[in-house]
């Protein structure tokens, strides 16, 4: 079995309102070094086998919405 982690995040050009709220809260806790927090999601796939093109197809067809989101694929050791 192979474990593949897909990270999906809002495109940088879009306002991440949840991330903004977290940023403000971190500042409220005096973590002043934080300029920006952005929230994404992790989808961990446990797979029989790994084929990059097929995982990309999963991202394009369902896991991410290319209109608003970027994704990265990591194959875990």
């Amino acid at each position: 079995m192979v474990t593949v982690r897909v990270l999906v995040s809002l495109k940088p050009s879009l306002l991440d309102s949840a991330g903004r709220t977290v940023t403000n809260s971190l500042k409220g806790l005096h973590f002043d070094e934080v300029h920006n927090a952005r929230i994404g999601k992790t989808i961990t796939l446990t797979m029989e086998s790994y084929d990059e093109d097929r995982v990309k197809a999963m991202c394009e067809k369902l896991l991410a919405n290319p209109v608003i989101e970027d994704y990265t694929i990591e194959v875990l050791p």
Binding site: L10, S17, A18, T21, N65, V67, I68
Partner: peptide, 17 residues
């Protein structure tokens, strides 16, 4: 409908959460 591609664009969380 936007997710299905029948309409362009997307709907995301309200600006004020």
């Amino acid at each position: 409908l936007t997710e299905s591609g029948l309409l362009p664009g997307a709907l995301v969380r309200n600006e004020e959460q």
